[in-house]
Design a protein around this nucleic acid. Structure first.
Length: 481
RNA sequence: GGCCCCUUGGUCAAGCGGUUAAGACAUCGCCCUUUCACGGCGGAAACACGAGUUCGAUUCUCGUAGGGGUCACCA
């Protein structure tokens, strides 16, 4: 039975890199029919951020990733919050000392700083000098009895190598002599990540560990821990980071890198998930569009790439547009409504506006500025009437608009089709291209060069009175020109 | 700096000793068209470098360069 975990530390928002790690973990798990566990790694009380746990819950749920065990849903391996597992770590740390894989260290911060300073000055790799590793049993007991603060350190082998096979990176080998005797249990009694994650992963029966590749070089240490306890080593799947640029990791400072920010910008969850899946993973076929369920079927660890991937919002935007265009008109309207109403307060047919918007909308957030002319005609420049391709100028537009106005005044009923047919007929009678008439109308009713839909569609939505009003304005201005 | 890892077009990437080196986004051109989009068609654009191994290297090995990670009582 495959069991995995997503184990974030509650230090703030959920950025895209975290989300992707969670997603890959989730996909691997669901594909294998396993259990997905959520564990909160809050052993560093200094970095703890209030509300961060809720952000994790909400983001994961909104993204459609549900966990089988976790702090809020329970499970057989709880508690799932590390700060509540304090006693467990202590017990295992002591146990490890018994087994010869760890030892007490009474060195204080000052001594540690001092040796580090010396080592750095002489350009040696800073490492604990293993002073306390040589303490005798009686010396240890004496210090313990007199209440000297202590930490528990991992006892690394001095010679040989440690290796493991990573599913993404392959075989990794390190010299044991380069391994530091890291602290397992801090003087505050809480474990370090190094220790807590190993103990918890084992106790929670985790079989596959998916995490960022910043852990690649410390994984041998964890394996040494598993070995010292006599525990089975899990399968490792390390993934490369998501980058903002080729040299910088994605971070909030460089832009909106959090999942929630993208949602707030009007990106669809499905598009975000789909794009994030593609960042660092490539499907077997040519298809690039996947729903979460489809991803579960298609996902394969073999497709995960080793090199870092640069986050490309342009492609996310395109994908988002694809999802928008795939929506039914009702679905699109339901999503776009609030953005439309943000810009259009007047009594216009919002659904008709939505229809115009759907094929030319990649992000909901872009909607308001596309339709801001409905409520109020912008004070546009007459040079807008000049359009090379349509072969129009302010001068050529004036007579067209005058005729349009005349015809429209008596048109009934006032429908898009009716307006369209009327204008096309007019073009035929005058023996001019449609654009010669249509383009000036668009400018007159919208005051813009580019609009969703053309003059006909806009006039239909605007209604007869408003359309004629705007035509009058245009005609007056052109006559005065 | 030591150690570990990475390196195919601007970006994501396929490739797994012999290919005209896929595809997608972006970009450019054309078509469609009442603008802009959508859609369709087409173009430009890449194996970091140097040695090996081999009949033959994008692919295997070793260097070089560039980049990332890690060396905490952070995770």
């Amino acid at each position: 039975m495959v069991r995995t975990r997503f184990a974030p530390s509650p230090t703030g928002y959920m950025h895209i890199g975290n989300l992707r790690t969670a997603l890959y973990t989730y996909l691997i798990t669901r594909k294998a029919g396993g259990k997905f566990i959520l564990r909160i790694e809050d052993t560093d009380q200094e970095r703890y951020v209030d509300g961060a746990v809720d952000i994790i819950y909400n983001s994961l749920r909104q993204a459609g990733m549900y966990w089988d065990e976790g702090p809020d849903v329970g499970g057989d391996c709880g508690p799932y919050i590390q700060s509540q597992r304090r006693d467990i770590y202590k017990k295992y740390a002591l146990d490890l000392i018994e087994k010869g894989g760890a030892y007490y260290c009474f060195c204080d911060k000052e001594r540690l700083d001092k040796i580090r300073t010396v080592q750095e000055a002489s350009k040696i790799v800073p490492m604990y000098d293993r002073h306390c590793r040589a303490l005798s049993a009686s010396e240890i007991q004496e210090k313990l009895d007199s209440g000297v603060p202590y930490v528990i350190r991992q006892k690394m082998p001095l010679t040989g190598t440690t290796s493991f096979d990573d599913k993404v990176f392959g075989k990794i080998v390190v010299e044991n002599s380069t391994l530091d005797d890291n602290i397992l249990l801090k003087s505050d009694g809480l474990p370090t990540y190094n220790f807590a994650n190993v103990v918890d992963d084992h106790l929670m029966g985790i079989t596959h560990i998916v995490r960022g590749n910043e852990y690649l070089s410390s994984t041998p240490k964890y394996n040494l821990l598993y070995n010292a306890f006599g525990w089975e080593i899990p399968t490792y799947i390390h993934v490369s980071p998501v980058m903002r640029t080729s040299t910088k990791k994605l971070s909030k400072r460089d832009g909106d890198a959090s999942y929630q920010d993208f949602i707030d910008k009007g990106y669809l969850n499905d598009a975000i998930i789909n794009y994030v899946a593609l960042l660092g993973w490539s499907p077997a076929g040519e298809n690039e569009k996947f729903t979460l369920d489809e991803l579960i079927k298609a996902f394969d660890i073999k497709g995960i790439s080793k090199s870092p991937a640069i986050f490309d919002e342009t492609k996310l935007t395109w994908l988002n547009g694809e999802y928008i265009r795939d929506m039914s008109v009702e679905e699109f309207y339901a999503n776009a409504k609030e953005y439309i109403e943000e810009a259009v307060k007047g009594d216009f047919d919002k659904k008709a506006i939505a229809t115009l918007l759907q094929p030319r909308c990649d992000r909901f957030i872009d909607i308001p500025e596309q339709i801001d002319f409905f409520d109020a005609l912008p004070n546009y420049d007459l040079s807008l009437y000049t359009h090379k391709k349509m072969k129009t100028t302010p001068e050529s537009s004036l007579p067209m608009l005058q005729q349009i106005k005349e015809q429209l005044t008596t048109l009934k009923p006032w429908t898009q089709q009716g307006i369209h047919d009327l204008l096309v007929t007019m073009a035929q009678n005058l023996d001019v291209k449609n654009g010669k008439i249509m383009y000036p109308l668009r400018v007159a009713v919208s005051g813009k060069q580019f609009t969703p839909g053309g003059g006909v569609e806009i006039a239909a939505i605007l209604g007869r009175d408003e359309t004629l009003k705007r035509l009058d304005i245009a005609i007056d201005r052109l006559e005065a020109n």
